[in-house]
Write a protein that binds this DNA or RNA. Structure first.
Lengths: 134, 134
DNA sequence: TATAAATTCTATTAAACAAGTAGGATATTT
DNA sequence: AAATATCCTACTTGTTTAATAGAATTTATA
């Protein structure tokens, strides 16, 4: 997992703690969660584009969760930042790509095994939410 | 998974088919499995250093498996080429690294969830062998 | 209404990694 | 001696990662 994605999880967890009461400043999150501030700005922007958080500009502004923590699936966030959950493109649900070197996907032994692994991981990632990482 | 790792799996599967009778030339594997030949040379060299295959130089030489296909765990190969199976360094068994931004690993929610995911994946990867991808 | 505080936008950077390619050295068989 | 094959080292090219920088925009409040 990229640091960007890890930081995103931590930021969401931080916002979840004050949900739905208040909003948090980037600088505050950056400081308390040990994330480079300018880097975190980009991350929060991505989370906003993804529809997970919203923001208020200007003095007294900040970020806050749009949805309840228990409705934000870890898999969604992972995909937003790191793309495929699967270890091989040919077993990916959302980022599928055919292997150029493989003539027959159905007969491919690698495909079979890594589909199992993807299924397992996907199940957990779509079952666990931000409220599970508080 | 890197292409290098995927090619390694395919090469091992190829060698497994002629185990223990004969050995295979790099050029033959490269051609039949659609792998760039010079790239495959490096991969087979790594597999040799890792103790999974052996080779014979000179005319009529080639590569062959050292161990039976059902004793070569997919997880071992994955680690050799791509390193950690875990998605976070702090939940890795063989490539452990402490997160600099995390004060307390035991209390970390991310740690907890991604440890579960690692456990799952590891279990399958150390249970499945080269004979499972034939 | 000016000022400070905050997000938003665009660009740049340095380092590492991925996926090869190249060419010659070495060993073995015929 | 010639052909065949692995072995070794280096190089290349493009992409990604993990940031950093600076200015533009929006908003509250003194």
């Amino acid at each position: 997992m990229s640091k960007k994605c890890k930081y995103a999880f931590k930021a969401l967890a931080h916002l979840a703690k004050s949900y739905p009461a208040t909003h948090c400043k980037t600088a505050e999150i950056a400081h308390l969660e040990n994330i480079p501030r300018k880097f975190l700005e980009l991350i929060l922007l991505d989370l906003k584009k993804g529809g997970f958080v919203n923001s208020k500009q200007g003095a007294g502004g900040g970020y806050y969760l749009v949805k309840a923590p228990e409705t934000i699936l870890l898999g969604e966030i992972y995909r937003l930042f790191d793309g495929a959950i699967a270890l091989l493109p040919c077993v990916s649900l959302k980022f599928y790509e055919k292997c150029k070197d493989c003539p027959d996907e159905v007969a491919c032994g690698l495909h079979r095994v890594f589909l199992q692994i993807r299924d397992q991981t996907l199940k957990l990632m779509l079952q666990k939410t931000v409220s599970d990482i508080l």
